[in-house]
Design a protein around this nucleic acid. Sequence first.
DNA 1: TTGTATGCGTTATCAT
DNA 2: ATGATAACGCATACAA
Lengths: 336, 336
Amino acid sequence: MATIKDIAKKAGVSITTVSRALNGYSDVNEDTRKKIVETAKLLNYSPNTIARSLVMKKSKTIGLLVSGFIRENAKDNFTIEVMTGVNDYASQTAYDIVLFTTNSSKQREKTYTQLCKERKVDGVIIQGIRTDDPYLDEVIEGEIPCVLVDIPKIGKHAGYVSTDNYAGAWEVGEYLAGLGHTSIGMVNGHEFAFVSQERLKGFKDSLIQKDIKLSDDRISNGDFTEESGGRAALQLLEDNPSTTAIFCASDLMAIGAMTALKSRGYRIPEDISIVGYDNILLSRYVQPGLTTISQDTYGLGYEAAKLLIDMLDHEGEPRKTIVLHELMERDSSAKV
Amino acid sequence: MATIKDIAKKAGVSITTVSRALNGYSDVNEDTRKKIVETAKLLNYSPNTIARSLVMKKSKTIGLLVSGFIRENAKDNFTIEVMTGVNDYASQTAYDIVLFTTNSSKQREKTYTQLCKERKVDGVIIQGIRTDDPYLDEVIEGEIPCVLVDIPKIGKHAGYVSTDNYAGAWEVGEYLAGLGHTSIGMVNGHEFAFVSQERLKGFKDSLIQKDIKLSDDRISNGDFTEESGGRAALQLLEDNPSTTAIFCASDLMAIGAMTALKSRGYRIPEDISIVGYDNILLSRYVQPGLTTISQDTYGLGYEAAKLLIDMLDHEGEPRKTIVLHELMERDSSAKV
DNA sequence: TTGTATGCGTTATCAT
DNA sequence: ATGATAACGCATACAA
C-alpha cells in the first residue's frame, strides 16, 4: 500500500506538500500538484481513512443501530426501508454506515454508547429501540449526536424523525365512524413503543368526537407480531361480540387478526372491518387487501440521515422531522 | 475521552503496562492489573479502535457490498435476509459490518476495491453483483479477501457461497413432468446472473431426461422484476398457446406472471401451472400460493460471513459453501 | 510555495 | 514485571 510518504519520496517533495496537494489546498504550485497527483496515480495510492480519522478525530462514519434486525422480522419491511433511506442519503455524502444490531436475545455486554465510542462513529441513528430500554436515556443524554426513529425525544445532541401517529390514528377513527361503525375495538401494540401510545390516544380522541367511547375492554394488546394480533382480535370479539370494526396498531397484527377471524368464520369486511397501520408490503397482497395508514418509511430513514449529517457537518441543532402519512383504503373495511 | 495515557498517569504506571494489562497479557502483576482495570473503569475508558487499527493494520471490519439495495427491491426480501445472516454471524465475532451499496444509478466514481482499500476493511462480502460488472474480476483477482454470494468463482483470495441452482431447477423439471406436463415454458432472468444460466441448464436437462424439449421459443427472458415476468409469460403463451406449465426463474417474476395471466382470464393452476424460485415472503401470501424452490437465504449470508471470517482469522483457504434448497409445493401448480 | 516537527492513541520491540 | 521508545499514516502549526 502506497502512502503519502512513498509519493513524497518519488516526487521529490515533502509529505506535507503531498498532503496539501492531494487535499486541494490552494497554496501549492500547480506544477508540483500535477506531479504529485500523477505519481499518486502511478503508485495506485489511496488514502488511509483510518490514519486520517485518528488525526482528525472524525471517522466519517455513522452508526446505524437497529433492533429487530432479526430473521423473524424480515416480514416487516419497515426496517429495511428505513435502512435504504438512510443509506441513500448517506451515500450522497462522505459518510459510510456501520451496522450495529441488538438482538434482544444476545445480552449485550456492551452498551450502545460503548459500541459507538469504540468504533468512533461520528453520530448514530437508532431504530426500533423500546422505550423501556435501559440505554435509551444514556443515548439521549449522551455526547454522541444521534437521531431517533419514532421516539419523540429531543436532547442536547439528540433529534428524532417520526410520523404523526396521533393524527394517523385520528384519521382511522374518523374513517371508521364515517363508515357508520359504532361498535369499535382496537388491537394495540405493547406499551413500550411510543407509537402505541400515540395511536391509542389519537384513535380514542377522534372517536370521542363522534360520541363513541373506546372503553378499556375494547382495547386488547398484542406485541406487534402477526400471531399476537390474531389472539388479541379473538379476545376482543369474545368480550364484545357486537364489534363491527377493529383498528390494529400494525399491519402485521392486522394480518394476524384477519387470518384468525376468517378461520372462525367471520367475513371481512362484511362482518368485521379491519384497519391496520404501516402499509407494509404484505398489506397489498393479502386477501382482502388491507386498509391501512401508509407511512413514508423510506423517508423516515432518509430524513434521519439528513438530520444527523446536518448536525454533524453544519452544527445543525438537534430537531425533529415529521414525515407524511396517508390513509390507504383497500378492501378490508366497509360500511357497517 | 480517556486514553491509556490518562490511565497510566493516574495509576502511576507506564502506558505499556496499561496496554498489556487491558489486553490480558500474562506478564503483568495481578495487583497492578487490578489497579489499572479499576482506574480504567473509573475514567470510563474505552479503547480507540481506530488507533488500534492503525498500528495493527487490521480494522476488524468487513464490508458488505450489496447492489440492489434500493427502494424498489424491498419486495424481494432476499437482500435483507442475506444481510441478517451476515450480521448474525458477524455479531458473534469481533467484526463489525460496514455497508457499501451500489445503486447502478449512481455512477460509482470509486471502484469497490477503492472503497474497501480506503476504509481498510479486512474482507468483503459481495451480493447482487452482475456477472457483467466490470469490477467483478478486479475483486476476484484482488488482494482483499472476499466472499461472493451466488457467483461461483474462486480466486486466490475469493470464495463463494451459493445454492445448487442447477439441482433446484432440475427438481422443478422433474416435478412438472411428474405432474404430467409436456408443454412447458420457462421465464428466465437476464443472462448476467449466474443463477439464470444454471437454472436454465438444470431445467432443460431434467426435461430432456423426460423426453421433453425446451426449445428456444419456449424460453422468454425477463429481468427479475415482477412486471417483466408478466410480460415474458404473456409472450410465451402467445408463441405457444398449448403451454400448460411455466417455470419462472424468480418468485417475483412468477408473481408478475400470475397476475398477468389471471388478468387475461387464465386460471391458475387449472389452466396453467406456475412454479417460481426463491421462496420470497410474498409467495406464501399471493393467491394461489406459489409453488417454488426455497433457498436458505439467511444461511447464505450466515455462511458467507463464516467463510470470510474463517479466511481472515484462521487463514482458511477460500472455498465454496453450498446451502440447501427445497421444493415448496403450494397451490399454483397441479396435474395437467 | 515548501519543509520540519509534532501528535492522534495504540501496539510492539527491546531494554532493564 | 515494567518502562522508554519507535512505529502506524496522516494533518497541521510553525518556520523558512
